[in-house]
Amino acid sequence: MPKRRTAAATLAGALCLVTVSACGGTSHDTAGDKASSPAPHSGYPVTLTNCGQTETFTKAPSRVVVMNGASVAEVSTLLALGLGDRIVANEQTYGMSEVPGRAEAIKALPTGGIKLNDAYDIPREAMIGLRPDFVLSVTSYGFDSKNGFATRQQLRTVDANSYISPQGCDDDPSKMTVSDSYRLLRDMGKVFNVSDRAEKLIAASEKSIAEVSAKVRGERRPNVMVLFSNMSMGGNDFSSVVANGIINDILSKAGGANAFASATKTTFADLSKEKVAATDVDALVVISYNDPDPAAYAKQLLKEFPQWPAAKNNTYTVLSDSLYLGPSNDLAVAKIAKVLHPDRF
């Protein structure tokens, strides 16, 4: 995985994020890396069909490795379920979050002392040396031998199960929705015998989103531009504009619409300045990633395109991990809805 592809995956929002309290009923709870062991019962074996492969768990995994994949969805989901003590190596990081304590909790996890490859991920030999019993990858890329990674079959020979996150089988997050975040939570709940925790988080998220969506129902749907702050991926001025994927589902639930959804069928659009200038943008959502001042970038864009309704009304917001696959999509829905429809809150 060349470095360029890593940036693309980051933008894809298969990157995906969250660390909420293990026993909290909502993703608004503060995060932590302490875990409580699930009570043993006769729920095993557990069998999942994942990307065409059957994975059978005879007990809850205790040596979990979380691959990078430019994601935080997997590590955030595990932490949300109170399973931080099961992780022996985590390569996912983000540095900021809508949930207080989440970024710090991720940073505090062990990394396994691995020398990462050019894709900032775990090569085959190092993976085997970690002696995992469960390995998570955001897409099938992380188990591709051509990329120097241990395959799922090779992991089986050392008694390790593996898992590819929802919509990751074909390495294409363009069809991802919030329901995929719930599927990831449910699958991990089953694997670790903490389904009650998973269902509590899902129910709280669904309730929050339903309440927000009800408040904005029937309102005009503003056109929203979503892009990464100060990040370039292609040959045009605007190459990190989100066109499809889970963010569109979040926008819809918040009472908005993606201004560039028709620009491409893939997750990201590579747009010229002229194309951006000619589009009516009612609101701007800037995704914060490795930028110390994303709000400044948003203000810069509004100044650059004064013809936008967004510029005339100073309508923008900055978000990070809640926009991706993971257990806190409800936070993004609520924040965007309040920006798009302030009179409804």
Rank of each mutant, 00 (worst) to 15 (best):
P132S: 08
D85S: 14
N248K: 14
T47S: 13
C16Y: 10
V88D: 05
I202S: 11
A283P: 07
P40F: 01
V18T: 12
T54A: 12
A105L: 04
K215R: 15
A243T: 12
V46C: 02
V333F: 00
V88N: 08
E219F: 00
D280V: 02
S97K: 03
Y182S: 06
A259W: 04
N314M: 07
T279H: 09
R63I: 04
P327N: 04
A203G: 11
D282P: 09
V318L: 06
V318K: 04
G142N: 09
V135Y: 06
P306H: 11
S179T: 12
I202Q: 09
I122C: 11
F228G: 13
L79S: 06
G52W: 05
V333Y: 01
D29Q: 07
T26S: 14
A332F: 05
I87R: 09
S195K: 07
N50C: 07
A269P: 11
R152S: 06
G113R: 13
G95V: 09
G235K: 15
P110S: 06
K253M: 10
E74I: 06
M225I: 12
G255Q: 02
P309W: 05
L155P: 10
N248R: 15
G69L: 03
A108W: 05
Y316R: 02
E125N: 14
G32K: 03
A108N: 10
I247A: 03
Q153N: 14
D180F: 03
Q154K: 07
T10M: 10
A12V: 00
G129N: 13
N90T: 08
K190F: 00
N161T: 11
E219Y: 01
R5V: 08
I250N: 08
A60M: 10
V65L: 09
T177Y: 01
A89E: 06
Q92H: 05
P173Q: 05
E206C: 05
L271S: 11
V64C: 10
A263V: 03
N329Q: 14
D172N: 14
N223F: 00
S62F: 00
N248Q: 13
H28C: 02
I247D: 03
V224Q: 09
T56S: 14
N313I: 01
H28S: 09
A259S: 13
S262R: 15
A295Y: 08
Q153L: 07
L271Y: 06
R186V: 01
L15V: 12
A295V: 12
A126F: 09
P292W: 01
A311G: 15
T19E: 12
C16G: 15
G218S: 02
I209A: 11
L331G: 04
R152Y: 05
N50D: 14
N68V: 00
D159I: 00
L78S: 06
G168I: 05
F260R: 11
F192T: 13
N290W: 13
K190A: 06
